[in-house]
Design a protein around this nucleic acid. Structure first.
Length: 559
RNA sequence: UGGGGCGUCGGCAAGCGGUAAGCCACCGGUCUUUGGAACCGGCAUCCGCAGGUUCGAAUCCUGCCGCCCCAGCCA
């Protein structure tokens, strides 16, 4: 027993704590919670927290609750509750029957507040917010006691009940904990526990006109749910003493422990609710689900698979150091997942016409193409081939530099799944622009292999001109032009004007038209894409999720 | 002499007194019907700095330096 090795390797300090607590018998099972306030949409930063909380519960055989921290009715909306549930589910996590709301506990929380009053640990303060602020002191100076601090508990009780009964206007009075106005930790300088808010709550309607603050509600909600490990971000470190003070002075059914970790920051994007809202409000993006947005709904529309997001969260790790993660790590996780799972298709973004001169006019045939070389079980499909094709304009150069080994005059290349072709002639319009390539094909190379064993250095994607379907393809680049938007000027100034490029006349192999919105695919040699909900029958709209790694681009840009 | 945290490769991140994991990025190479994928190899004599303890320190002690959070009746 004593020399038993842990089954899981050490991952982070939080899992260490959980493992120790289980091993020592401090807890029989682990219970975590993801506690969003329903006041906005979830974004990639939340994925870290979601994956941490649900992941730990899963790994240690415990459970994770989804709890809406709905203590401030003026900021919260039902719409967000549903959106958040959808996002968490989409990520692949399941809270089972454990869906809760802080508002479920309003009555209990209220009773405990009276308990605090009776214990002489809370008092009703008649001062205004400004007066309270003025008395709080500063970071270096202690605060001063409120004139109402020594009010007797009977009077406090009467007043607090009157607060609840709606006898006072918003802001007229608050309930404060009586702790220490000289504490170095400002959170302990008699924090506000209840405020008067004559506002309708998305769930409790007009039943209440006093609402608990986060500080008062959170720890007690954790205790009610028997949360063992309450994981939150670093900025709440200062609140932990208050969290513990409350849990110690109240007859709560369990003693949860708050543990803080560093929130996720991603380079080249913004994650604050305020900034995201501004992007939407000012029309800088098409909406919360714009595929360039770091919101979960944006990411979903962009085509990122949930498994990739979970993998990303694991790769990012959990620690207490403030850090900024390179989006390349996210893209890596996305490519890894999509490489395994995405069906391959061909499509041309910038079509260049190719006429196979020795291919019979009016004829066509179907060639077999593998759906995913990484997954034999994915099968194959048939791709139409004919005399007139489109290839990618960038795959031809009239005067190729040394390392360019795609198509060029007189050069032979392979058309993927099809034939070896040789460029015989370049046709230009009066302005000198290339409009067409006249090529020949070798009928003996059907499928792509030459019987004589000769090799070509390039394989190009292509599409039959007559069979291809037209499509709109949306190409995305980072929303910002620098990793740290706003570092030197207003962050909006750092918005990337080229973050969206629309290709309206892409040509895709016909089978793409059969895909449903949301389906993901790889356009060979170009990248991973997914069908946008804007797609209509016969007119697909594709979002480029992420490009393929492009070694040639590096070589080209270097020389 | 306000309180609370954090400083290990370009970016994340292990390391918990025994002589610097891993991942991403980057750089080579092999292979290839995606210049994709896969595979092989390279990439911190050094852990913010300075002292000290020790046979031995990124890990312990002391002192500096730097960065982040806190003065909402937001969460």
């Amino acid at each position: 027993m004593s020399d038993e090795q842990p089954a899981v390797e050490r991952q982070d300090f939080i899992r260490d704590i959980v493992r120790d607590d289980l091993a020592s018998g401090r807890h029989r099972e682990v219970v975590t919670r993801f506690p969003p306030e329903p006041n906005g949409y979830l974004h990639i930063g939340h994925v870290k927290s979601i994956a941490l909380n649900f992941g730990i519960a899963e790994e240690f055989g415990g459970r994770c609750h989804l709890r809406f921290d709905d203590t401030n009715p003026v900021k919260e909306e039902h719409e967000y509750i549903e959106a958040i549930k959808e996002d968490v589910r989409w990520l692949g996590f399941d809270w089972g029957a454990h869906l809760y709301h802080a508002s479920d506990y309003f009555e209990q929380l209220y009773e405990w507040a009276e308990h605090l009053i009776r214990s002489g640990l809370a008092y009703v303060d008649d001062q205004s917010a400004d007066e309270i602020r003025a008395q709080r002191g500063t970071l270096t100076e202690p605060g001063a006691a409120s004139p109402w601090r020594e009010r007797g508990s009977d009077e406090n009780l009467v007043l607090f009940r009157a607060m609840r009964a709606g006898e006072f206007a918003d802001g007229a009075r608050v309930l404060r904990a009586k702790i220490d106005m000289a504490a170095g930790n400002i959170n302990l300088r008699d924090p506000v526990l209840y405020r008067i808010l004559h506002a309708s709550h998305p769930r409790t309607g007009d039943r209440w006109c006093i609402y608990p603050t986060y500080d008062y509600a959170h720890g007690q909600s954790d205790a009610i749910e028997h949360i063992t490990h309450s994981l939150c971000t670093l900025e709440f470190e200062d609140h932990r003493p208050l969290y513990e003070w409350l849990v110690e002075h109240l007859p709560v059914p369990s003693r949860p422990r708050q543990i803080e970790f560093a929130r996720l920051n991603l380079a080249s994007t913004v994650l604050s609710k305020r900034r995201l809202l501004r992007l939407v409000a000012e029309g800088r993006v098409s909406g919360w689900d714009d595929p360039r947005m770091p919101t979960i709904c944006g990411i979903r529309r962009r085509g990122y698979p949930p498994a990739a997001l979970r993998d990303f969260a694991l790769r990012v790790g959990v620690a207490k150091r403030n850090s900024v993660v390179d989006p390349a790590l996210l893209e890596h996780a996305v490519r890894t997942e999509l490489n395994r799972t995405a069906a391959r298709r061909m499509g041309v973004l910038e079509p260049l016409k190719v006429v196979i001169e020795n291919y019979p006019e009016g004829a066509s045939e179907e060639l077999e193409a593998v759906n995913n070389p990484e997954d034999p079980g994915a099968g194959s499909r048939r791709v139409p081939f004919a005399r007139e094709l489109f290839i990618e304009a960038g795959d031809f150069m009239e005067e190729p530099p040394p390392k360019f080994y795609r198509l060029a005059p007189g050069r032979e290349v392979r058309l993927r799944y099809a034939y070896l072709i040789t460029c015989r002639e370049v046709v230009k319009d009066p302005s000198g622009a290339i409009v067409e390539l006249r090529c020949s094909y070798d009928p003996a190379t059907r499928g792509g292999d030459a019987p004589d064993g000769r090799k070509v250095k390039a394989t190009l994607h292509w599409v039959s001109a007559a069979h291809a379907v037209g499509a709109e393809v949306r190409l995305y680049e980072p929303l910002f032009t620098r990793p740290d938007p706003g570092a030197e000027r207003d962050w909006v100034e750092d918005l990337n004007p080229a973050s969206l490029r629309v290709v309206s006349e892409a040509r895709l192999e016909p089978s793409v038209a059969e895909l449903a919105a949301g389906e993901r695919l790889q356009l060979e040699r170009l990248g991973y894409f997914c069908l946008d909900p804007d797609s209509r029958p016969g007119r697909p709209v594709l979002n480029r999720t992420v490009t393929l790694r492009d070694t040639w681009a590096k070589v080209r840009d270097r020389g």
